Amino acid sequence: MPIAAMTIELRIENAASLKDRRQVVRSLKEKLGHGFNISIAEMDEAVTWQSATLGVVAISRSRDYLSGLMKQVEDATNRITNGLGAQVTELWWEFIEADGENE
């Protein structure tokens, strides 16, 4: 069964504190989580106030569905981050095949 895994790297230029950074990350996670059937989590510790890395995963029986979903998530991420005063510096995703067998 295919799993789509996406990594989103953000630059938050206007973040002057950890609180500013958290506000952007929390807002993006909430908006993506409510808009799509995905799981999303912060992948790094707050090394700097101006950057963040998020991970997104989705599972489906259909690779075509997942491809479309990841494109929608990418478009929404760019739109939402622009509205939050942040920008996507890198975004990529890949399929991870799960064979469904227990080891």
Rank of each mutant, 00 (worst) to 15 (best):
S17N: 09
S17I: 08
S17L: 05
L18K: 08
L18Q: 11
D20C: 07
D20N: 14
D20W: 00
D20M: 02
R21Q: 13
R21M: 04
R21G: 07
R22E: 00
R22T: 00
V24W: 02
V24D: 08
R26L: 00
R26Y: 00
R26V: 03
R26G: 13
S27R: 13
L28A: 10
K29I: 08
K29H: 03
K29M: 12
E30D: 15
E30V: 05
L32A: 08
G33L: 05
G33P: 01
G33T: 03
H34F: 01
H34E: 07
G35F: 00
G35V: 02
F36V: 01
F36L: 00
F36Y: 08
F36S: 01
N37A: 11
N37F: 01
N37Q: 10
I38F: 14
I38H: 11
I38G: 15
I38P: 13
S39D: 06
I40S: 00
I40K: 05
I40H: 08
A41M: 06
A41R: 10
E42K: 12
M43Y: 01
M43R: 10
M43P: 04
E45N: 12
A46V: 10
V47S: 09
T48H: 08
W49R: 04
W49E: 14
W49I: 06
Q50W: 04
Q50A: 03
Q50P: 15
Q50R: 12
S51C: 07
S51V: 06
A52P: 05
A52N: 02
T53Y: 03
T53S: 13
L54S: 11
L54H: 09
G55F: 00
V56N: 07
V57K: 05
A58T: 07
A58I: 07
S60P: 15
S60W: 01
S60C: 09
S62N: 11
R63V: 12
D64F: 05
D64I: 13
Y65M: 03
Y65Q: 07
L66Q: 08
L66V: 11
L66W: 06
S67L: 05
S67H: 12
G68H: 03
G68V: 03
L69N: 09
L69I: 02
L69P: 14
M70L: 05
M70C: 12
M70R: 09
M70G: 13
K71A: 13
K71M: 11
Q72N: 14
V73W: 04
E74Q: 12
D75H: 09
D75G: 12
D75Q: 11
D75K: 09
T77E: 13
N78G: 15
N78E: 11
I80L: 12
I80K: 01
I80R: 04
T81Y: 01
T81C: 14
N82W: 01
G83R: 06
G83A: 01
L84P: 15
L84S: 11
L84E: 12
G85Y: 09
A86N: 07
Q87W: 00
Q87G: 14
Q87E: 12
Q87T: 15
V88Y: 11
T89G: 03
L91N: 07
W93R: 02
W93Y: 14
